[in-house]
């Protein structure tokens, strides 16, 4: 850590210490929850009520407001899981290991939602629940990667060794992320191309774009909240015999 000034190193170390993290998350969670509703409710209202129906897809396109944010999050959470896994692997920071493993069930949920809502959108629009094309198949592989991480972690009793194994699996799986993202451009598929994340102007009207971005922000906040709740449980399980947990129990 010779590149980082001492004071910052000390600050980081204190922030990442389990008792501090546990107390900090308790203070943060109500604020994050309030912020989450602040984005979710206008997002839902804008997407389901205010936005006009699509000129080709009618009202069925409204699935976009949960499908696209959860698909984005399925990729975002995976990258975050792999990065925190790598940090845990290199510096053996306990909190990084916990963020890594706590991300997996949340990411798996987002992936599952992206697949199911996509299927429910595909049936009326494409006429089929599922096709084995590049986008759908690589997203399904992402779900299996998440499930592999969860399974591997629970299969190894020594949680520090488990965290190492999981980090390596997560890092190897990162190759799938660009494949998912570019699948609609590299291969000819039934799945439509990107409408929002294009470098030039997004090909979506502002009245549809605003609720989509609100929902994306809400989903990101949900991830933070769910991640912190998972991390609190994981931390308590791992540190059940530590002095700070005993003090915490006494105070309650």
């Amino acid at each position: 850590m010779f590149l980082i000034p001492d004071s910052i190193g000390r600050w980081f170390h204190r922030m990442a210490s389990p008792p501090h993290f546990y107390a900090l998350t308790e203070q943060l969670l109500p604020w994050l929850t309030a912020l989450f509703w602040l984005f979710l409710l206008p997002g839902l209202y804008g997407g389901l009520v205010l936005a006009p129906p699509d000129y080709q897809q009618g009202d069925s396109y409204r699935i976009i407001y949960i499908h696209v944010p959860s698909a984005w999050m399925s990729l975002f959470v995976y990258v975050l899981m792999a990065v925190s896994g790598a940090i845990g692997l290199v510096w053996r920071i306990k909190l990084a290991e916990i963020v890594c493993i706590s991300s997996a069930p949340v990411g798996a949920s987002f992936t599952f939602i992206a697949l199911v809502t996509g299927s429910l959108w595909g049936k009326p629009m494409w006429g089929t629940w599922w096709v084995w094309d590049a986008r759908l198949t690589s997203e399904l592989i992402l779900l299996f990667l998440y499930l592999g991480v969860i399974g591997l972690y629970s299969a190894i009793d020594d949680k520090r060794a488990a965290a190492k194994a999981v980090a390596i699996l997560a890092l190897v799986g990162v190759v799938n992320i660009p494949i998912i993202h570019y699948s609609v451009e590299w291969w000819n598929t039934l799945h439509q191309g990107p409408t929002v994340t294009k470098l030039d102007k997004p090909s979506i009207h502002i009245s549809m774009l605003v609720p989509l971005l609100l929902m994306a922000a809400a989903f990101k906040l949900y991830y933070l909240i769910a991640l912190l709740q998972r991390a609190r449980l994981e931390l308590l399980q791992r540190e059940r015999n530590a002095q700070w947990v005993k003090t915490l129990l006494k105070d309650n």
């Binding site: 129906p53 009618g58 009202d59 069925s60 409204r62 699935i63 429910l120 959108w121 049936k123 009326p124």
Partner: peptide, 8 residues
């Protein structure tokens, strides 16, 4: 939902 109630 314009006939798409089930899916949406």
């Amino acid at each position: 939902m314009g006939g798409y109630a089930f899916y949406v």
